[in-house]
Design a protein around this nucleic acid. Structure first.
Lengths: 221, 221, 221, 221
DNA sequence: AATGAATGAGCGTTCATTCAT
DNA sequence: AATGAATGAACGCTCATTCAT
């Protein structure tokens, strides 16, 4: 347990130097996750069994349970993975935005980019008509939603964005982002720019029109 | 589903009342659907088995298969049920709308009303953090989406609504409707009016701002 | 559920007439019990698996669970079976006994007879040196013990038996019966009469000598 | 088990103290046995797995197999342990006995004392109604039985005890000892003395009455 | 049409054991 | 000698589905 001061290792102490064991462990975990990703995309969440996942791996069945204790847990890990992958990008572009239109535009763009690049993952969440879609709001995913909402609130406080219900606003952005992604993926070629422009303009105009917004409201027909 | 006037039954044919046999059939089917609804809400889609459903019924296991051939099929029937329940109302309010703000407002209001009245059903679709949500776009559900899109296109043609991408627009409305519903249900008391106003104003303002719209576009902050 | 007064059956109402279904059910249950008996005797309780039992049967694996829910439950049923088989005999001989020596002698004799006739069953309870013996005091078995103790108490009340601690006395009889059975079975030929005489004489003499025994009655003849 | 005087170790050989390595070995073995004892008492023999045992230890799973090759073997070791613990005491009191009543009384007393002091162990062998009791007559246990039988034969030869079937007699003593222990443990407070007096008197009187017993010696005082 | 026991594939999981470190 | 992850056979069990009644 204790760390000997002098290490009888041939590697630079204190840096990476994962033992062979740790290496295999990492590899195994990655193998399971990657197999799971494929299988989920192919068979859907409910159609997938733990055995399907390990079969895609060259590990023994029991090995699965050294890493995850159920299909749900792998699924969650996969979702967390995605969330952890987009969130830094989203946070960055929002931090860099100096005006609200940019804030929105870059948020949507990053999200649509991510969706376009990771279609296999979304094959799971968005499937053919009549088939079952599945969504899991893991803690990491929820955290991403909350970051968005917090950033929106901040922008409102700073007078950059009109002061509207931030909870509903974040929800709307998320709803639009997911649903528009879906349609975007169905078109050929995939037009991230178009989707971005649509979503941004819709939201930007809409927000301006919201009751709480001080600006001339409720335009149209 | 429809009741033929002349019945090929061996019982008194001269009454308009459904034969006892058909009556039982309808009852059984309804019993299965209602049991399924409860079980799905309680156990989630994946957690539910055909056995769980029939157990809530006083039918024998084999009887299930006279009505549905799998859990997926009952689930689909349930979804269709809901879709068939809201769609007439949605179509009606949209047909009655003489201006676009009313069109949008009444669409959202009807949907949020429906959600508020049918929370058990949405307990299935929207579950606690970390748990799995499930959604199935059955033909009837998709038809509902298409009706919305068609109505939007019609409104655009008639010059009532700005001419924007109707596919993305319908998608956005749907995304907003679902995601805002979710938040609406989490608040106490449930405020259908507030949700309706938010969604309507957001969309109405947004549409006016969309590039294709002929009106002064895209401004803000 | 209700019993129609006139039955459209071709069999004498009110008597046996088990339907074919009930017949198979009874057969299946019996088949499982009998297979279990053999397997337990061969592999010991812990060595036996549910699958071993069904394998000895020509039933499908799932069928087992229509009848029992675990190996423990079959085992218990088997034990109950035995207990229910000996107890009537034991009760009868004790009821018929007019003196205490007869009471004891016939109790032991019946038990040893039973053991001698049912060696396969005892193969489970009494196994080779070094192997594990298993005993399960199911409710039915315990009831048998209690009947013995009650009868002993009755005999004491009636002045037929000396008044000693009936709990310890019943325990002693049971201990002797089991342990002596074991030795009896190891001898060739099996001498039920010898075992009976030994146990009876030992107990009869012993009881007479017990401190509480006030009476001089019941001398060994 | 034995300590060779000359040790093939690379450590200071000139001390009588066990080498550190041997010390650890002994400790590990003891740790496993003690963990096993607890787990068996808690989970029952069948319910216990090797993993359960090592988990209670701070050893690695593989280490178990340096000491025992199966759960059965640990169980056997535990049983041997007990047997080796009582037998010297039993042998001693019997050797010291100058008359047969004392021989019996001290045998029972020692056994009941042992049981009373080691209830955890008997929790395994004797469990609640309906649950499974397990008993293993390991070689060491059997040796204890044989010692009893030999001592009985010796006493008969020496004219101290009546000449009766020594095999059945030993069996009876063992049966009584086990079964009466059981009842004794259920009473509050635990009355070793009472159990001893009961068993001794019963057996002593009984033996005197046995047909083979020619002698009038050895009456209960 | 309804029943409900039988079926058997196949699932999740555990576990004793091995063996590279 | 100790470690602990990997192994894979095999277990208990469930389940959708069938089919004789």
């Amino acid at each position: 347990m204790s760390e000997p001061v002098i290490q009888d290792t041939d590697e630079k102490p204190d840096t990476a130097a994962p033992s062979k064991r740790e290496q295999t462990k990492a590899n195994n975990k990655a193998a399971i996750l990657s197999a799971a990703q494929e299988v989920f995309a192919e068979l859907g969440y409910e159609g997938t069994t733990v055995r399907d996942i390990i079969r895609k791996t060259n590990l023994a069945s029991g090995t699965f349970y050294n890493y995850f204790k159920s299909k749900e847990e792998v699924f969650e890990a996969l979702m967390d993975d995605r969330a952890l992958k987009v969130r830094p990008k989203l946070n960055e572009v929002r931090k860099d935005a100096t005006d609200f239109p940019t804030f929105l535009r870059e948020t949507f763009r990053s999200f649509f980019d991510f969706v376009a690049e990771d279609q296999q993952h979304f094959a799971l969440v968005r499937r053919n008509t009549g088939a079952i879609r599945v969504r899991m709001d893991t803690p990491e995913v929820v955290a991403g939603f909350e970051e968005l909402q917090n950033d929106l609130e901040q922008a409102m406080k700073n007078g950059l964005a009109p002061k509207v219900d931030p909870d509903f606003l974040a929800a709307s952005m998320i709803g639009i982002a997911f649903e528009v992604s879906d349609r975007m993926l169905m078109r050929e070629p995939i037009d991230v720019e178009g989707a971005t422009e649509f979503a941004t303009a819709l939201l930007l105009g809409g927000i301006g029109a919201l009751p709480e917004g001080l600006m001339d409201s409720d335009r149209l027909e």
